[in-house]
Design a binder for these strands. Structure first.
Lengths: 183, 183
DNA sequence: CCTTGAATATACCGATCTGTCTATCTATAT
DNA sequence: ATATAGATAGACAGATCGGTATATTCAAGG
């Protein structure tokens, strides 16, 4: 199952789909960019949708591990970690090639809730929520789950605002709002 | 310029693109659903992108007028109108055929900031922000522009959460957060 | 050395895509 | 009644789509 070719294929497709969209990027672009034969792709994946699912799974793993580590890295004893989350977002938004949340983008193109791709997006968002809930519970705030809901809403809002509106200060604005929210 | 056929074409395309996505829905589907000849479409629009732009413009008009009216309709003297906004969102999310924000979805498929479609999405979001700012300024809150930023972030977060996660309580959660935000 | 399995290039399939062309029809207005 | 403008159906173009078939090359392991 695990193979260097397969690995490289997923990474390449991840880049292309993230930057160009799922329907707009064809198999030909993926194999050309990856420098891999057409049949090698279909040897590892039954269909384009399977490849998309693999890229989303990898994105989920990569993003969550980066997200958790970045919170630790940017944390300071003086600040509630719930607020540090928005510094992490700010770093993300400023990264080269930032194109919003790949899962929101995927849901926009595959809106049928029964579609496995759509299912994968919900799963990812659920994992993010659960991690924020953990932080909230550990930060000594009252009604941690309510606060986590509000924090996640601000996070999603910041992602959308930064990407769709090109607002470079979305994360900072969200952090300011979060401060009032935590009280 | 204005024509019944053209009008009907825009309405039909609006429905189909909103439900099915822009790349995934082809011209053939649009003309079949509209019951209109192929050449009639290309007589009114130079290209598919022009048609998409027309649908986004109509969506912008329809949504904003509905949004403003719904706020008035659901307003009560006892409540800050900034909070009423989330009751309006709740109504929207519960509507049949709800498929998120068409402009967020459009930005996901056309992420190039120079693309006219992308430009249209930013314009729409700017208009929404400005209306929320008006409400904030009229609601006697301190730092109305800051508050408006927070409200809009919660709105965008609620839209994303309701659509991507299928969370039916996203608007209510956002309203709860907004209450703390207004103070 | 030989076998086995993976990767390769390339041709090909049927379907669909956006967009064009043409020829016919219809309704309205002069 | 006739001229004009818009709508029609349908064929067509050229490109691209996702996916398959085949035959060849290559590298590693026994």
């Amino acid at each position: 199952m695990a193979s260097a070719k397969r690995d490289h294929l997923i990474d390449t497709a991840l880049d292309l789909f993230y930057q160009g969209g799922f329907h707009a990027v064809g198999i030909d672009r993926v194999i050309a960019q990856a420098g891999i034969a057409r049949m090698t792709l279909y040897n590892h994946f039954k269909s384009k949708d399977e490849l998309i699912l693999a890229t989303l799974q990898r994105r989920d793993e990569k993003f969550l591990s980066w997200f958790v580590a970045a919170i630790e890295r940017l944390s300071s004893p003086a600040e509630n970690q719930l607020l540090t989350v928005f510094d992490v977002l700010d770093e993300w938004f400023a990264a080269e090639g930032y194109a919003g949340c790949m899962f929101i983008n995927a849901a926009a193109e595959y809106s049928d809730p029964k579609n496995p791709i759509n299912v994968a997006t919900r799963k990812h968002k659920q994992l993010v929520l659960e991690h924020v809930q953990e932080i909230a519970r550990g930060s000594g705030v009252v009604d941690p789950d309510d606060v986590a809901d509000g924090i996640v809403l601000l996070m999603e809002g910041a992602i959308t605002t930064s990407f769709v509106c090109g607002d470079r200060h979305a994360a900072i604005k969200a952090k300011r709002a979060a401060r009032k929210l935590i009280g």
